[in-house]
Design a protein around this nucleic acid. Structure first.
Length: 551
DNA sequence: AAATATACTTAGAATGCTTAGG
DNA sequence: CCTAAGCATTCTAAGTATATTT
């Protein structure tokens, strides 16, 4: 289950933590900051407005290794006859061939886009021959990559070790930068390799060729007086600039959506940690304004201005249901998904009465990543009445909030509280929910195992609020699952019984253990909850969270 | 004021690694 | 031991937010 990890930690620490007394990270002086109020330690060395660094030095990005042509024995067939492809066409063919067992290759849009882009890479003669994807046979190519993957798996211990060391060497060479005198880990130092675009849901561009990026596509950002990264031999950077108002080290434009991709720092870096911390401070500040804001939007439900009413109802949804803001998107460029402000009439249904409640709104729409949001919620009467009004004389495809944009909503929020935007409500409500759940579910005398169970349950509640979920398995996987359903059910029963036993044992042990019995209300060692990486990433939170920290 | 560009966060899928159970 | 389930990490698509341009 995926849950916004920052808020998880932040709120969890408040209630769970045996919090280590150690400095947050290098560059942060040793003494622990005071428990409430501003995060003086993390604010130290603050630059003036908009400036993100004084010094930035790095080695540039790591490029995908060049294409290795297929061995002669691996052939591509057209209409049953082997056809020798040019290197350029072959490379793109391998992108498709290796995906043959993926559901994508059964989708018409994917196939059409791939074939269209593939033909562009072909030589004239190839293009004259290869005219239909249905007549293409990539099975040998596919087999080749399957075998290759299998061969990797059965490598000897030493060979695997060698591969690991090579990866480590790469990490050492390209994975770090110097920012203001400190070494920092980079998040994504590798340029994305070429391949076929894997858009989610019904993406109109799925299958398109994501071009290979060369140094000539890449803009480097570093300090003027630093050692400028060397482009790979025989190449040049598109541009080298020195802009210290941004945090990225390198950038390029991706060929499918024409959007800019960035090389940036790892979340454990000071820079990222600071902004994450600030984000929580903003959400925490909202606590002091939220009552006022709520009575304000309630009053606005009766405003004479339609614009204001729409804004007030939308804000109510964002607050109550943790919906995303819902920016507009260009159609034809991406899958048809919506958020709060971009909801259409077809996405909501009004029920005067349902499930024994009055004024029920039924939401059914695709949100971020094409994850379905389905919910039936009783709402207050004025909200219901307003929705009826907003839907009057509209087509299903019309905007529900036709007088509202994310920009105007955020402008309004900014006036209510400095730094307030729509997404802050998600952070705020998720954090508050986790904290309340932890309070409700845990007791001081619980064993550590029981507390962890409560913690996981609390997170599940937050996940439901935020509609975090994985896509349903593909039809292929589904049929596999069906075959195994019976076995699975039995296994689960057994596993559940085992888990129960283990839990009982753990509890027994914990009860008997004097040390853990002395635990205070929420104490659980932080290692039990967060992996090393997570603890590094949230060093700032660990450093600032005191015994009595509350969100 | 609408469209566009830019920079940054969020989040699911894919992949890698560890560990529990046979 | 080996295997596979489950967790962690990596990858990159898809969001949000806002500044700039038209």
């Amino acid at each position: 289950m995926r849950v916004v990890r920052l808020l998880r930690l932040r709120a969890a620490l408040t209630l769970l933590g045996e919090v280590p007394r150690r400095p947050a990270s290098r560059g942060v002086p040793g003494s622990r900051r005071t428990q409430k109020g501003s995060g003086a330690r993390w604010e130290k060395e603050k630059h003036e407005d908009g400036v993100k660094w004084r010094q930035l030095e790095h080695k540039g990005p790591y490029f995908a290794p060049p294409y290795e042509p297929l061995p002669d024995g691996v052939r591509f067939f057209y209409e049953g006859r082997p056809v020798r492809l040019s290197v350029a066409a072959e490379e793109v063919a391998t992108f498709y061939g290796r995906m043959l067992d993926h559901e994508y290759t059964t989708k018409e849009v994917f196939r059409k886009n791939f074939f269209n882009d593939w033909r562009k890479e072909m030589a004239v003669e190839e293009r004259e021959v290869i005219k239909s994807l249905d007549k293409c046979d990539f099975t040998e190519i596919h087999r080749y990559f399957v075998d290759k993957a299998a061969a990797r798996k059965v490598l000897s211990r030493e060979e695997k070790q060698k591969l690991k060391e090579e990866a480590e060497k790469l990490q050492q060479e390209f994975g770090y930068c110097i920012l203001d005198g400190h070494q920092e880990k980079i998040g994504n130092f590798k340029i994305e390799p070429p391949g076929l675009f894997r858009g989610r849901g019904d993406h109109p561009k799925m299958g398109m060729l994501k071009r290979r990026i060369t140094p000539e596509d890449v803009v480097i950002n570093c300090s003027r007086d630093s050692k400028i990264p060397e482009p790979p031999a025989g190449h040049q950077w598109k541009e080298v600039r020195s802009d210290n108002t941004v945090t990225w080290l390198a950038a390029w434009t991706e060929s499918v959506q024409n959007s800019i991709k960035y090389i940036m720092l790892n979340p454990c870096s000071k820079l990222k940690g600071e902004t994450a911390w600030q984000k929580f401070e903003t959400a925490r500040r909202l606590r002091g304004f939220v009552d006022e804001i709520r009575s304000q939007y309630r009053a606005d439900w009766k405003s004479r201005e339609m614009k204001t009413r729409q804004r007030a109802v939308a804000l109510y949804f964002i607050d109550k249901l943790a919906l995303r803001a819902g920016n507009e998107k260009e159609d034809g460029e991406a899958a048809d998904t919506v958020g709060c402000c971009s909801l259409r009439v077809e996405h909501v249904q009004l029920h005067p009465e349902a499930d024994g409640c009055q004024h029920v709104v039924e939401f059914d729409f695709l949100g971020k990543d094409c994850i379905r949001y389905y919910n039936r919620v009783p709402v207050e009467k004025p909200v219901y009445k307003n929705l009826q009004l907003f839907m009057e004389n509209k087509d299903p495809r019309d905007d529900l909030f036709d007088r509202l944009t994310t920009t105007s909503l955020n402008k309004h929020l900014q006036e209510l509280m400095d730094g307030l935007t729509a997404k802050v409500f998600r952070t705020y409500n998720a954090s508050i929910t986790l904290q309340e759940q932890l309070r409700a579910l845990t007791r001081a005398e619980d064993s550590i195992a029981a507390k962890i169970l409560s913690y996981n349950r609390a997170n599940r509640v937050v996940a439901i609020l935020c509609n975090h979920q994985r896509a349903t398995p593909s039809t292929f996987e589904k049929s596999m699952q069906n075959l195994q359903t019976k076995i699975q059910a039995k296994k689960e029963q057994v596993a559940e019984a085992r888990a129960e036993l283990r839990r009982a044992r753990a509890e027994h042990k914990a009860q008997g253990d004097g040390k853990s019995r002395r635990c205070k209300r929420f104490r659980v060692p932080v290692e039990k909850i967060y992996s090393k990486t997570q603890r590094e990433r949230f060093a700032w939170a660990l450093a600032m969270a005191g015994e009595d920290f509350e969100f």
